[in-house]
């Protein structure tokens, strides 16, 4: 089933073993090279925690299920700390072609809720296949040449 970054923000994260609500989805951290979701970021700022995609038991329409509380962990490297600070959030990020031309702002990203594989990027009225993503960081999402519509 197809899901989107925008619609999954705020979704509750629930422990399968205790049925307790552990928090809610702040945003999703992507692995640009693999073009898939690497982790779910829960909460913001210093209290932010991550759950690796591989630790999820289900990314459902009403809740994101994890085995138990031990699946939540603090950020462990610079990239994850940047993610916890909200710097790598894709929605709202500037999209830049590899030719150095701005394409607009990223409005949303769709992904397969079963696998975490990215499907499409929505930039204004345009839909761009996620296969064109070359890199993603705090400044921009960089897209391959075929997406360059510069004059």
């Amino acid at each position: 089933m197809s899901e989107s970054f925008r619609s999954s923000a705020g979704r509750k994260v629930v422990s399968r073993s205790s049925a307790r609500e552990l928090g809610s989805v702040s945003h999703l951290l992507v692995d640009a090279r693999q073009r898939r979701i690497a982790a779910v970021v829960i909460g913001r700022g210093k209290k932010a925690q991550l759950v690796d995609w591989t630790q999820l038991s289900g990314f459902g329409p009403d809740a994101v299920m994890v085995g138990d509380e031990s699946a939540l962990r603090p950020p462990s490297d610079d990239r994850e700390r940047a993610a916890a600070a909200g710097k790598l959030e894709l929605v709202g990020k500037r999209a830049l072609s590899e030719q150095g031309n701005e394409l607009g702002e990223l409005d949303d990203v769709t992904f397969d809720a079963g696998t975490g594989v990215l499907e499409e990027l929505l930039i204004g009225t345009r839909r761009v296949h996620a296969g064109s993503v070359l890199g993603s960081g705090s400044y921009a999402v960089v897209l391959g040449e075929s997406q360059d519509h510069s004059p």
Partner: peptide, 11 residues
């Protein structure tokens, strides 16, 4: 102009 990495998306 910013100098931006293709692979990292960083300025």
């Amino acid at each position: 102009l910013p100098v931006v990495t293709v692979q990292g998306g960083e300025d």
